[in-house]
Design a protein around this nucleic acid. Sequence first.
DNA 1: TGTACATCAGTGAACGCGCGTTCACTGATGTAC
DNA 2: TGTACATCAGTGAACGCGCGTTCACTGATGTAC
Lengths: 192, 192
Amino acid sequence: MAGYHHGNLRDAILAGAASVISRDGVGGLSLRAVAADIGVSHTAFRRHFGSREGVLNALAVQGNLMLAEWLRGAAAAGEFADVGVAYVRFALANPGHFAVMFRSDLLDNDDPELICARAESLAPLRDGVRALGAADATATEVAVWGVVHGVATLALTGTLAGALDGPLHAPDQAADVESLVRRALSMLIPPG
Amino acid sequence: MAGYHHGNLRDAILAGAASVISRDGVGGLSLRAVAADIGVSHTAFRRHFGSREGVLNALAVQGNLMLAEWLRGAAAAGEFADVGVAYVRFALANPGHFAVMFRSDLLDNDDPELICARAESLAPLRDGVRALGAADATATEVAVWGVVHGVATLALTGTLAGALDGPLHAPDQAADVESLVRRALSMLIPPG
DNA sequence: TGTACATCAGTGAACGCGCGTTCACTGATGTAC
DNA sequence: TGTACATCAGTGAACGCGCGTTCACTGATGTAC
């Protein structure tokens, strides 16, 4: 596996970049640092991604496809609230991807792959809301998406744990957040 | 006003930094660029803020105090949903501050001023939720905070307008977002 | 089976750039007497 | 009212650093015959 040819450099770079971003934010992403981590020349990424923006775009595409998969899995297995919980779970499990996916100012939004991945990623959430048959479907969609996105963002920045006195403690924050999301969602949708 | 002494350099730097951040993100903030915009030496900020982190901290403190004021104003004037709407309005009107306030990884979280400002900023939201007397107060708080924070974040990154087909068009996005938030909140709280 | 050649994958030195910080400084303002 | 001095506010040259990109390159792999 070691040697001149890496074998799976593309995936290794994406994984490394996601890891750095989850620690230092998108602004702190240095391709040189990622390359050094992987043990590869700092120009090696060029062949696969062209430029820095190319790396971010690939990360956003991958993130959207992963999210689609998580949501689809939850939609198939359980009731609708599980889809919302899966959204938050995905964000907490893949903070690097999550941070890039919505930064359209840093991405090439004309990239057909990205357009396609984005269309796919939220479909299960949208379809799930439609299936509920709520009176104001658009508002329900915004409410559900907003609450899961907001809670995920607040949890990732450490704000949620800091602001809510009491129940949240770092060790198993994920479990606590999940419970909160479930209770919040049950106020929006008839529990089934 | 012009001359060797600026007169209000501190505020000018904060305003300039907020403006740059709203355009380029926190990572894109260059104190040299801000100084050049204001027409001042690129080392002038040192006397007021010490370091780059000092600028970000001051911005976060200011943002939290502003948010507190917006929320207090809404709480005093109207019904509870207005507080939630004010949160979103504040974020859309002050994207630079909003982007910094929750990035605790970039701030000195031990700064007493920041601790104090943070404690103040969300109090009206929390108090308003408590006053509703909901069955699960914590979940209601998370639901309300999550939905307004999530919608604000999605709107700021342009994701909301892109994903929701139909009703949202750039020109008066603010008004559309506001209407959506109001409808979403009415599903969480008994409209009064 | 072996040889020649094309293609693919990664290298590493060099580039220019903009950044935050340091330092000794100068101009302006306030205060004491 | 004037003078001396201390303090405050902003300057600008210099620093070292890490970044993304460029370029001509070399090592490894695949294909044709």
